[in-house]
């Protein structure tokens, strides 16, 4: 099959280019990450991040035939019709909107900065009991679909609002985290958290495009979380 990969080495390349490889996959429905590994076996200069290779560490977010996803859990058959059969090339690019360090490895500093801005940790100033803090299964269920985020950045880097304002708009990943703590019955910083979001950019630049939902490899729904925060802000205002 034909694979086309975005290449850029800051030490030798003036500008990025697409490099084509011919890869023998023996008809197997490999994961995209496996295909990259086959290429790296013969061209060790190809650069990408990977760790768990099972979709839980979030290292290998990349743009695959136009859609962001994790290479390790994206089988060729799901990339686009015809890719597995070799009728269409597999096209791999770095996550859009972030500076490229080399090939498929992007500089995620901006993404992590936005994450840190939402105070992504439980705030509870009451002295802790000798055992755990109690939480009903119903209250615990409220953070399902929120805590599972793996910080792969597939969502934020697919979001046009984040592309335009990566420093002012927090982006779907950070906002999902924010709501993860707002929705946690053990957290006491609701007022403070909402206060930090109540400006024209941090949250309200979300235009409900929902690219984040369509690309999230964990099936999470940042748009819905953002909607919940909007409602909380609205309630607070009246």
């Amino acid at each position: 099959m034909k694979v086309s990969i975005y290449r850029y080495n800051p030490e030798t390349d003036r500008e990025p280019y697409m490099q084509d490889y011919e890869v023998d996959i023996a008809g197997k429905d490999l994961m995209v990450l496996d295909v990259l590994a086959l290429i790296k076996d013969r061209d060790s200069s190809l650069t990408y991040r990977r760790s768990c290779r099972e979709g839980v560490c979030g290292s290998d977010g990349m743009n695959i035939n136009g859609k962001n996803g994790l290479a390790c859990i994206t089988p060729l058959s799901e990339v686009a019709p015809g890719v597995l059969e070799g009728k269409k090339p597999l096209v791999v690019r770095p996550l859009p909107g972030l500076p490229v360090i080399r090939d498929l490895a992007v500089d995620m500093t901006m993404f992590y900065n936005q994450y840190e801005k939402v105070k992504p940790y439980l705030i509870n100033e009451t002295p802790a009991p000798a055992i755990e803090r109690l939480q009903t299964p119903e209250d615990r269920a409220k953070i399902d679909g929120l805590y599972e985020c793996i910080l792969c950045a597939c969502c934020s880097t697919s979001c046009p609002s984040f592309w335009w304002n990566p420093e002012k708009f927090l982006g779907p990943a950070a906002l999902l985290q924010s709501y993860r703590f707002l929705a946690d019955s053990r957290d006491q910083a609701t007022t403070e958290r909402l206060g930090h979001l109540d400006d024209p950019f941090s949250l309200f630049r979300c235009r409900g495009i929902m690219n984040c939902v369509s690309v999230c490899p964990k099936g999470l729904n940042p748009t819905r979380a953002i909607g919940h925060i909007r409602s909380m802000l609205l309630e607070r205002a009246v």
Binding site: Y121, N124, E132, R133, L134, T136, P137, R140
Partner: peptide, 15 residues
Amino acid sequence: EHMGLPFSRTEEGRI
């Protein structure tokens, strides 16, 4: 748990 680890819960609210 005090740090916020989202453990699953029993009906009594314990871990």
